[in-house]
Write a protein that binds this DNA or RNA. Structure first.
Lengths: 339, 339
DNA sequence: TCCGCATCTGGGAGCGCTCCCAGAACCCGC
DNA sequence: GCGGGTTCTGGGAGCGCTCCCAGATGCGGA
């Protein structure tokens, strides 16, 4: 009765129905691409929509329907401080590209240790249809927790525990395996590694690749120092390695950001790169090309990672069957000056 | 009557009301921070919310209310490829921190040249209450366009044209002014600059600061080469400068990412840093600390930038009056090895 | 005492859709 | 002709909130 409250601009579905000469229900069916609508009605509705410039109200659809028409991108706060900076834009570009043209909102959340409870409540509270979780820390419980509540989730990066949500990751193992094979093909004989932390899958997978590469040539796999994805810790690790094996002739560093620290130490000690010591990094971040000498490194396609995660999630939401549980994306060696 | 349809999980406002012993209306008032609620009721409601783990349904609030309870963070696709990577995480952390505890969704959009129309339509179509636009390209029309439609907008980074949306930016001018004064205090007498592109406010502001710093000591301001925020173009610019003034003794580079290129050229030509040539960068990105030698640079607080933008937008949405049209955030000089 | 105003509260009508239901229209084979 | 299906359609009850309204209560001044 009362017409007091200010209404939003634009036509409602009711007006479309009137103009098209059908009922609300039929308009709704057309909009949602359901079957059981005659060609005649469909055309009429499309014409009415175009005529009125109608666009359905997102909130109303979400409220009335059984889906939220939105997905969340959850990024671990912690990770974002360390590794994620270079990832960030890439992942997001990928997600966005894959979302283009679909009527799905992208909600952004950062995963702070503090608000774990709230976040789970929010995510499983029907506000989103699914979640992409980018958490570099392999032991982050979020993907698993969400997965167990039944919310469709795709994890970016392999969770350490396994058995939880499906994940998409770069093929870290084969990437570093390739790097080591390359170093061996160069004739290097004493190949060390600066590995990532033990509690990150990305660190462990890259370490495994290095081990495997050496093992298949019967070479010893004892020159390992763990580090934590910062330049300074990379430098410390390099010092440690040189102390243990001053005559090493190659280092595979599990991340470019650690490699720059290692480079610094090697140069300070008078080692020529790559003549005395060959260095190979991982990631192909901007640091790799700006380092002196420019870093030979294993490239991972972060944008593709974002795309693939999104594709996998949307496919699941679309009810697709027999989706791959998890996926690894290929990496490639980028040769520059350091090896 | 019929209880056929599957309801979303979680408690409704009605249950909170029952547990708190008040009405729906009162719960709603508490949630929305309205006045005219007794302290007693407020407490009871808060307790009930905590007890039940209630989180309001976003779609319902949006549908019923006059606001969308969401803001958009629009990031220029273009920018994200160049400068934004280091910004990205920082801005987002800031935005997120400022949003904490408020029931405002953060929608992420990338601003591709292609979908300008759609994007404006979407943003002004009532899906969001306001927008944060991070566009490093000063001539991006989006902030202005949105602002003119009446949508509250805050631009991150000063738009070149001016007169449009309010903006928040680092104080690029004073940052570079400080850098130049510092170089002069070191006794440097022939101070060049590698500036950013002419079509980015960030580039022009940093150039102005350099000019001003030299001018106040009566020094010539002709050693300028424009470049485009990549290491390679920084290197080219450095070569050009050395051609014009082989005896320069300092360079202010308007971004760390260009500075690494400049460093490379200087070292290749046999200049000692900082003895022969002092180099100061801008941003204090990760590149600054990993460069050899580590880069003396002007630090800007990107996280604070994100926070401030968000604060400004929310304040406007909250109906606050007499807000500053635009704001500049202080920068600080970080001394490392290059100057 | 009584009125006015500020403070507080609950009831209930929507917001614009989706989706269930019931039923109409039409086709097929027996 | 009749039962059984498939295709199509409209009506209308919600989805979970907000916000208007009307009413209750308390306090101060005339």
């Amino acid at each position: 009765m009362t017409e007091g409250r200010s209404r939003r601009p634009g036509p409602r579905i009711e007006e479309v129905a009137r103009v098209a000469g059908v009922s609300k229900s039929t308009v709704s069916r057309v909009i949602n691409g359901e079957k059981y609508v005659s060609e005649r009605s469909r055309q009429a509705v499309h014409r009415a929509i175009a005529l009125l410039g109608y666009s359905p109200n997102h909130a109303a659809r979400t409220l009335a329907g059984s889906k939220a028409n939105a997905i969340a991108l959850v990024i671990s706060e912690q990770g974002s401080r360390v590794l994620a900076d270079p990832f960030f834009a890439g992942i997001l570009r990928g997600v966005h590209a894959e979302l283009a043209g679909r009527h799905v909102q992208l909600l952004l959340m950062m995963n702070q240790p503090l608000d774990g409870e709230d976040q789970v409540a929010y995510l499983t509270g029907g506000h989103v249809d699914g979640a992409l979780v980018v958490s570099l820390h392999g032991e982050d419980p979020l993907p698993r927790t969400l997965h167990e509540t039944g919310l469709p989730v795709v994890s970016g990066g392999r969770p350490l525990a396994g058995g939880g949500a499906p994940f998409v990751d770069s093929d870290n193992f084969n990437g570093s395996l390739g790097a080591v094979r390359f170093l061996i093909s160069l004739g290097r004989e004493k190949i060390a590694t600066i590995a990532g932390p033990r509690d990150m899958a990305v660190g462990m997978d890259r370490l495994s690749g290095w081990r495997c590469g050496l093992a298949e040539h019967g070479m010893p796999v004892d020159l390992v120092v763990h580090s934590d994805f910062t330049p300074d810790s990379g430098a410390l690790a390099m010092e440690e390695l040189l102390r243990r094996a001053p005559d090493l002739d190659a280092v595979f560093v599990a991340a470019d950001i650690m490699a720059v620290g290692a480079l610094r130490v090697l140069q300070a000690r008078g080692y020529r790169i790559p003549d005395d010591v060959a260095v190979v990094g991982f990631d192909d971040s901007v640091l790799a090309s700006t380092a002196t000498p420019p870093l030979t490194t294993v490239r991972q396609d972060v944008e593709q990672l974002g795309r693939t995660m999104t594709w996998r999630l949307l496919a699941e939401l679309g009810g697709e069957e027999k989706l791959p549980q998890s996926m690894l994306l290929p990496t490639s060696l980028v040769r520059r000056g350091s090896a």
